[in-house]
């Protein structure tokens, strides 16, 4: 494992911790898209089905369990916590699941390398992860007064994607059999989706102003 991959994983973990702290700390999930969170949970479930059959390292197994556990907790809090669920912007979070899930499923069926259930679901999870942030970005655009934690959450998540690209470039040059156009394409698409957000994030940081995305 290289330093980019480790740093990427840590950013990913940190983004989830920041989100959980925001939700449980201030008892509010304002500005957070439940749809994106549910899609991420679906991504983790479909990707980590191999958790008991394909042992890579203790690190991988523990991280998989942590990602599954924390994303389930976030969805649970937003859906069922007596106080927190009242702060969810349901009317604003209108992105259609099917718009993201259906193309991912079709692409997974069309392009999976081998046709086993695990492999097709793994491929599906790669496609879905690339676009799962979209409901969140749309919601951010509609939210006035984005709080710092929400902005930082999306920023950390974007950093994780950026670092994974560096990890792939590193692996491409250091590992003989590391060829995966699928993961590359999806990763780049996913990172491009964040570009607009990054632009406004840095702008607000530079001018010391609150983050706001133009509608």
């Amino acid at each position: 494992m290289n330093v980019f991959r480790l740093a990427g994983d840590m950013m990913h973990l940190l983004s989830i911790v920041v989100l959980l702290l925001k939700i449980t700390g201030i008892k509010s999930c304002r500005g957070i898209s439940l749809k994106t969170q549910e899609l991420y949970l679906l991504v983790f479930i479909t990707r980590y089905l191999d958790i008991f059959t394909n042992f890579v390292s203790l690190y991988n197994t523990v991280m998989k369990l942590v990602f599954l556990g924390t994303s389930s907790a976030i969805v649970y809090y937003m859906r069922y916590d007596r106080i927190i669920k009242l702060t969810y912007d349901k009317e604003q979070d209108t992105f259609k699941y099917l718009l993201l899930v259906a193309p991912s499923a079709v692409l997974a069926l069309a392009t999976s390398h081998v046709y086993t259930v695990l492999e097709v679901l793994w491929t599906f999870s790669i496609y879905l992860e690339a676009v799962a942030i979209m409901p969140q970005l749309v919601l951010l655009q509609r939210t006035q007064n984005i709080d710092n934690l929400t902005g930082n959450y999306v920023f950390l998540l974007g950093s994780y994607r950026g670092l994974y690209i560096l990890n792939w470039i590193y692996r491409f040059f250091t590992e003989k059999h590391y060829r995966q156009w699928l993961v590359w394409t999806c990763g780049v698409v996913q990172t491009i989706i964040y570009c607009d957000f990054f632009y406004y994030y840095f702008l607000s940081w530079q001018n010391n102003e609150k983050l706001a995305l133009p509608a």
């Binding site: 991959r5 191999d50 999976s112 994974y164 792939w168 059999h177 995966q180």
Partner: peptide
């Protein structure tokens, strides 16, 4: 790696 995919990544 199976399928050339990054199955050892998260």
């Amino acid at each position: 790696i199976e399928g050339g995919g990054a199955h050892d990544e998260l």
